[in-house]
Structures are given as C-alpha cells and as structure tokens.
C-alpha cells in the first residue's frame, strides 16, 4: 500500500567548516490524504529540516539530501528544481513561524497572495486579485477588499498569520506544511489560528503536517503524532495512544518535563543532559546518553547498536527497551523511574 506522502530513510547533511552536520538521519514519515500529523521535537531535532526537504528547498544548495520522498507516486528528491516548482505552492503549500519576516515587506498582502495564485494559474492580474480578496475573506480577515491593499507591517501578528495561510492555500494544495505557525503568537490568537487551520482542513480535505514543539497544540489539532529526536523518528502513534501510553523514554521525558495547568504543582522532571551533537553522532541510540532506561538493559547495548523503528499495530517505537517489553505499559507516570536531574552539561 502506498501512502499519499511517504518519506523513507531521509538524510539531510550540511557541509560546514567544522565538518558534516547531520540534521536528519534516516527520517521516516507517512501521511494519508486528509490526515493531520503533528511533527514534534525540540530545537535541533530536524523537524523543520525534514519539512524543508519535502518542499525541495535544499535543491540548488550545498546540503546533501538522500532517501526517498514519495508524493503521490513521484519521488520528489530526484526532481529537478524546475519540475519541483510545479509542486511548490500548487500541490504543497507551506506556512512559517514568523509571518512578519516570511512576507515581503514591500508588497501588499493582496499582491503577495495574487502572485502565489498567478504562478500556477494563467489569469489576469485583476482576476488574481479577486481570488486573493476572496481567500482573505475565507481566512477570516474582515473587510478583506480594503485590507488586501495593506502591507504586512500594518497587520497584527494573528492577521499576518491568517494572510500567510491564505497565501499557502490559494492554489488549494493537497498538502499543507505548517512550520511552527503559532509559536510566535499569543495563546488567544493561537487558539484562533488552530481553529482556522482545522476548519480549512476539513473544508478542503487536504493533509497537514504540523510542526511544533508544543504537545498541547498536537493534542488539540492532530490525529497522529511523530516524535523526532536527533533527526530521526523515535516514535509515532495516534494522538490518543501517545498520550495514554507513550512508548519511547524520550516521549515520556518530554511529557514529564512539561508544566501542566491542572496537575499538582510539584517538581518538574526534566530530561537530564542535552541533545546529541549533530557534528558527531553517537553510534548507538541517539538518546542513550540521556536515557535512564538504558541502564536496565544489557551493558552497552543502547550505546553500541542503533535501535530500529518497530511497528506494533499503529504504534511505532525506536527503542531497545520497548522492543524487549520493558516499557510496554504505563502512561507518563512510568517516567517516574527517570527522576534524577542534572545540569545540561
């Protein structure tokens, strides 16, 4: 069975003066039509790089991209920059974290949306402007016709992100990649934008990859979660499963370190240490150094041998301990054995 989008063994490496930075190390990700998947991870986990690779933004650059990105039967990695242009904006739309810097400061919002439409549709400027105004109305901008003539800096943060969404969706792409679209926004505005994205997603039945570091946002919006660590998928499962029985020690650690609005306000349980250096990746499990569970396993197993992504029904986990049934049951509280905290030295 082939998925709508299927990323297999994706590697993205950047040559630098200090050596090769391995930002993505064998990433796997699949997506069905109409599905919303949350791509979760901390900074440096490779989530943004993965989405930019899907968009083909590393073509014509020094970055080395390998693996396969199969989109409706076409391998996007092997496409030329010119062929890839037919996908960008038309079949895959993208929105970014900071809409103020992601929009051109010198063109009006309407012009920028109309431009996105005219790239892929042979219409007059006037017709494209009509489409842009219509689109601004659909994303909930009041008085869309006059606001279309405003510049991005004249919009508020939330309005700009709405305009950005209008620009990404104006050609009705089948896949929308949202790269931390609400991180820079206030919670009340974030809530509006999440409502908008899920509303439009249901209306158009497009698939969404939602990149975020916020598990709460994932719980609100997504059907499935992919957790990234060190440029790999370490766990993926339906939202319900991951919050009820997180499989990977890293996922458990993330949940335990999040302050909550309703639990008791005891001490938080941070994950000790810091993420692996991408210049010099460890041979074994990328999380082994910070993992308390690794100690329960045979000497050196986690540090020597990189675990594979094992499939248990609709739940995939990349962990030696999980594979051996050592972590099979239990919610975030199972991370209780992961107390112990140290400076992130």
């Amino acid at each position: 069975m082939t998925s709508f989008l299927s990323v297999k063994d994706l590697h993205v490496e950047f040559p630098t003066d200090d050596g090769l930075v391995s930002a993505v190390n064998g990433m796997d990700l699949s997506l069905e039509r109409g599905e919303t998947v949350g791509l979760v991870g901390e900074s440096g986990s490779g989530k943004s790089v993965t989405t930019q690779a899907i968009m083909g933004l590393f073509k014509d650059s020094k970055a080395r991209v390998s693996g396969t990105i199969d989109f409706e039967g076409t391998d996007l990695i092997s496409l030329s920059e010119n062929r890839m242009r037919e996908y960008r904006g038309k079949k895959i739309g993208m929105i970014f974290q900071d809409p103020l810097s992601a929009m051109h400061p010198f063109y009006t919002v309407g012009e920028q949306i109309a431009e996105a439409y005219r790239v892929h549709n042979q219409v007059s400027k006037k017709a494209a402007k009509e489409v842009a105004v219509d689109m601004l109305g659909r994303v909930g901008i009041p008085a869309a016709r006059s606001r279309a003539d405003s510049y991005p800096h004249e919009f508020s943060g939330g309005m700009r992100q709405r305009a950005m969404i209008a620009m990404a969706l104006v050609c009705e792409p089948e896949l929308l990649i949202a790269d931390e679209p609400t991180t820079a926004l206030d919670v009340t505005v974030q809530a509006q934008i999440l409502d908008l994205i899920s509303g439009l997603q249901q209306e158009t039945n497009s698939a969404v990859i939602f990149v975020t570091h916020d598990l709460g946002v994932v719980a609100e919006l997504c059907q499935r979660v992919v957790v990234m660590y060190g440029g790999q998928c370490v766990e993926q499962a339906p939202v319900r499963t991951i919050f009820r029985e997180p499989g990977h020690p890293y996922t458990r650690g993330l949940m335990a370190s999040m302050p909550a609005l309703s639990d008791e306000t005891g001490r938080l349980k941070p994950i000790p240490g810091s993420p692996p250096a991408l210049l010099d990746l460890p041979k074994g499990c990328l999380f082994a150094e910070r993992c308390e569970v690794a100690k329960l396993l045979p000497e050196g197993l986690c540090r020597e041998e990189r675990p594979l992504l094992r499939i248990h029904g609709d739940h995939e986990v990349r962990c030696h301990a999980h594979e051996r049934g050592l972590l099979a049951v239990g919610g975030p509280s199972a991370a209780g054995n992961m107390k112990g905290e140290s400076a992130d030295v």
């Binding site: 968009m55 242009r85 960008r88 904006g89 739309g93 992601a102 990404a168």
Partner: peptide, 23 residues
Amino acid sequence: DFMRTARAKGLARRSIVFKHGVR
C-alpha cells in the same frame, strides 16, 4: 525568510531574485 516564502510559492528563480530580492 521572505525569499524562502517566494520559493515555497513556486516562483521561478528570476522573479525570486529580481522581484523579491533586488527590491
């Protein structure tokens, strides 16, 4: 960032450079 946005729209290199970059 807006140059990346221009690419993500599917614009040709020429209009990315001249229309968005040079201006």
